[in-house]
Design a protein around this nucleic acid. Structure first.
Lengths: 332, 332
DNA sequence: ACAACCACGTTAAACGTTGTAAACGACTCT
DNA sequence: AGAGTCGTTTACAACGTTTAACGTGGTTGT
């Protein structure tokens, strides 16, 4: 059915091995021979059989990207960037939705896809079991996002403490004094961002009110909306909110709109991630904007470097550049 | 390195083939033997090698989903659903971003991924070359979304004419008379939805003003925003807009907010797709809501049926159920 | 002339899995 | 006891590719 190497060889009048050499850019080939082979390849519309190749080479040029859910805009945007970055390097990304809790399990259990995959970029949502080791996976792994430092894996992440501190400081700088935080969940992301939030409050000499730190049950719009309702029910509601991601912020804005409150006049809101929705929302959302393309490109590069064999080098920890985007939700 | 079939066989004291039989649920196996083998599998943490398996079987249990871009919320949500639907059936989805124009080319050229893939679910953005035939791909293909009917492929799509007609009629029913359409682009989607839009106008005896049909350059928020600006610059601006997707609508809403116009009082807006953003936007967005889970499940089922061998059956054309969600952008 | 390359060819052996067909018991039936 | 039957297990050959080892003429430089 499908044309194979030997068909190409027959048509080009060369050996199978020579065709293989052409395809794999083996250096010592006459221009003439190469042309003949390439013509045959084109004529027969030959495409190498990935299965056979990866069976033989032990490498597939496939990597996996494990994210909590691809319908979440931040991850969708990130996935798109990573896909692009990988494609530029001739490799294909397989996206795996871990869907919350049993993330790590699923990953290790069926995630390896029977050795088809050369490596994994993993964006954990729950705290990654500290005991997840290289031995468990057998494949190179790059972690995305916060995670208790000192891990044994390559990692690329925003300096969330600093970024959160910046975001909070921005709210303080526009005169807010009662600043709430939404997203203080059980995740490591929540913990790290709270740290930055508290740091900023402390630096400004502001009191720290536990009632203003809401955990919520997740990181979606509905969770942000629910947390915001709780905050509004407080005897003394906040005059600013730092949401640990944009989705939470958009949910919070929805609740504020329903309550007839003006943003930023009554309540200012800052998010984190800079997803596109926020740039078109009314009001537009101020947010921490990580450089997603940079993140994607470096995550892929790091992983490919490991796959290429630099397995022994110490784990690397890259910090993603970010900016604070000031938009309507905080700028009067 | 990795444990293989023969390792398991050695440990269980049976032949390689028997282990294979156990894994593939071959019916005639003693409980005793099966138990032994399964114990060995567990003990060695054996996982089948996908490459070898698919080389041998000619089937990989991988399908591709080709969409314009995964960062677009509708496609992200759809991708998530399709991924889930496929996973339920034990197959894996590989997502391919066609990124606009050369979609079909890319698909056919490198999309087949060297015969790794068993089939494709293809959501074309540009008009699919009518000459794209089964022969080109060699693999089963299911089309998503509008497309000049009478094709030679299985297809699952919303009845866009009817849905667009419903959306427009809804605008008429709330008293609007000057209704614009955004998204009348060069795509088949644009053409089909315009048809429904015009049909509704005609049915209501409303005049059809070409100046109110905007093509724009794409289907993103920015395109919607730009088109809306054009409409507002008209001597006689519209009192309602039907946007051919939610992203356009969200962009339009942004422009309206900037212009200080009230929605729906001054201008009512309806979208298409029912992405989550619209449900949290201020105002919340009225829209046509296709049943994405249904769509995903049926697309996958259709494709798998073809893959399973029902290749000769006539192509099937499934119509996705939808509802009109009336929200703030049209309800006073 | 001699070596040192170069550009290929030939052959064989993997990679890990499954389909085919045949072998092996343990039965039952005469 | 022998032939037939059934259920269970196995040996062997693929699937399409790459790698290795070895060989063969040709070209070039000394």
């Amino acid at each position: 059915m499908a044309t194979r190497l030997s068909d190409v060889a027959a048509r080009a009048g060369v050996s199978v091995k020579t065709v293989s050499n052409v395809i794999n850019d083996y250096p010592h080939i006459t221009a003439r021979t190469r042309a003949k082979v390439e013509a045959a390849i084109a004529a027969l519309d030959y495409r190498p059989n990935v299965s056979a190749r990866s069976l033989r080479k032990g490498r597939s040029d496939f990597i996996a990207l494990a994210i909590p859910e691809m319908a979440s805009p931040y991850f969708a945007e990130l996935g798109a960037e990573i896909s692009r970055a990988a494609k530029r390097r001739g490799i294909t990304v397989l996206i795996d939705q871990t869907e919350g809790g049993a993330a790590a399990e699923k990953l290790v259990l069926d995630g390896m896809r029977g050795q088809l995959i050369d490596g994994i970029i993993f964006s954990p949502i729950t705290t990654v079991p500290a005991k997840l080791t290289v031995a468990d996976t057998g494949k190179p792994l790059v972690l995305l996002g916060e995670r208790p430092a000192g891990g044994q894996f390559d990692r690329v992440a925003v300096d969330s403490v600093q970024a959160s501190c910046d975001a909070t400081t921005h709210l303080i700088s526009i005169g807010r004094r009662r600043i709430a935080a939404i997203g203080v969940g059980g995740t490591s992301t929540g913990a790290v961002r709270r740290k930055g939030y508290r740091k900023a409050l402390k630096a400004a000499g502001l009191p720290h009110d536990p009632a203003l730190e809401l955990a919520g049950t997740g990181y979606h719009r509905e969770d942000g909306a629910a947390s915001m309702r709780e905050l509004l029910a407080l005897p003394e509601p906040p005059d600013a909110i730092f949401c640990f991601n944009d989705l939470l912020a958009l949910g919070a804005l929805r609740t504020l709109a329903d309550a007839g409150l003006r943003v930023p006049d009554d309540v200012a809101v800052v998010g984190f991630d800079d997803i596109e929705d926020g740039r078109y929302h009314s009001p537009t959302l101020s947010t921490i904007s990580p450089d997603k393309a940079w993140l994607a490109d470096n995550a892929v590069a790091l992983l490919l470097d490991r796959i290429a064999g630099n397995g022994e080098a110490a784990h690397r920890d890259l910090t993603v550049p970010y900016t604070l985007q000031i938009r309507e939700s905080t700028a009067g």
